[in-house]
Amino acid sequence: MTGYKFKFEKILSLRNKEEEQAENKYLHLKKELNEINQQIKELELEKEEVFDNLRTDNHNINSHIEMRDYLKRLRIVKIKIEEKKAEKAEAVKKQFEYMMEKKKERKTLEKLKEKESKKFFKEFLAAEQKELDELGRHYGTGGR
């Protein structure tokens, strides 16, 4: 009897590659989202520094005006980054769902492969047992 060959092996291989690509894209998007979160933290720290300067340096009016203008620009930048964060979070969510779908497809094929290989093995063992029984009968009747 010849060895077992899964008839959907190429499809399974393709599903593995698709899942791997989906996971890589998910990780990349997640990394970008973390970078955006880091930018927001840095903006918050910068904003706090400006507030500290405003509290401590209350003698120079021009400096005060410049810092307030700078705070307005920081707020605008933060709003834009928050919008980018929301978009990226949505992309991460969609990519995660896509990745899970690809994982499910791969697992389905792997289970099919496992079932077919068990079935093949049982059939192989049954054929071997039948052949051994025939040999036993043949030699049991005197080898004729």
Rank of each mutant, 00 (worst) to 15 (best):
I36P: 03
I65E: 00
K85P: 02
L71W: 00
E44L: 04
A91R: 06
L29N: 08
E90V: 10
E23Y: 12
L109R: 06
S117R: 09
N58K: 05
K122F: 05
N62H: 02
L135W: 03
L29D: 07
A89V: 03
K30E: 12
E83Y: 03
E97W: 02
S63A: 04
F51D: 07
K107L: 12
E116D: 10
E97V: 11
T2N: 14
F124R: 04
E123M: 09
K93N: 14
V92T: 06
K80S: 08
V77G: 05
E46D: 10
R137F: 03
E123S: 13
L43K: 01
Q129D: 12
K107W: 03
L43C: 03
K84H: 05
E82N: 09
I61Q: 04
K17T: 15
M67Q: 04
E116K: 10
L112Q: 12
K5W: 13
D52H: 03
E101V: 07
L109P: 00
G136Y: 01
E87K: 12
K17Q: 15
T2C: 10
R75A: 11
E46L: 06
K25T: 11
N24E: 15
Y98I: 10
G3T: 14
K85H: 08
K118W: 04
A86C: 04
D69G: 06
E46V: 00
A127C: 01
E18F: 12
L14D: 15
M1G: 15
K102E: 12
E48V: 01
K17R: 15
D69Y: 02
M1E: 13
E35N: 15
L43G: 05
R137G: 12
D69S: 07
K85Y: 02
Y139R: 02
K118M: 08
I11N: 14
K85R: 13
H28Y: 15
E131T: 05
E20L: 15
N34D: 14
M67G: 00
N62E: 05
K47W: 00
E42T: 08
Y98C: 09
E35M: 11
K17L: 14
E123Q: 10
V92Y: 06
E49P: 00
E114N: 12
E114V: 05
E116V: 01
E18C: 14
D133I: 01
L125W: 01
I79K: 11
T108E: 14
N58D: 09
E23M: 13
L125E: 11
N16I: 11
E19M: 14
A22Y: 04
M100H: 08
S13Q: 14
E90L: 15
K31G: 08
L54M: 01
F6A: 09
E23N: 15
Q38M: 10
F6Y: 15
D69L: 08
G140E: 00
N37M: 02
E42M: 05
K80A: 08
L45C: 07
A91G: 06
Y4A: 10
A22V: 07
I36Y: 01
K80M: 03
T56W: 00
S63C: 01
E18W: 08
G3F: 06
D133L: 05
K119L: 09
D57Q: 08
D133E: 10
V92N: 11
K30Y: 13
L12S: 11
E105Y: 07
I40K: 06
Y26H: 13
Q38I: 06
L135I: 02
R106P: 05
E110S: 11
F51Y: 11
N62M: 01
K102S: 12
K72A: 08
E82V: 02
Q38T: 13
Q38S: 13
E134H: 05
Y139D: 02
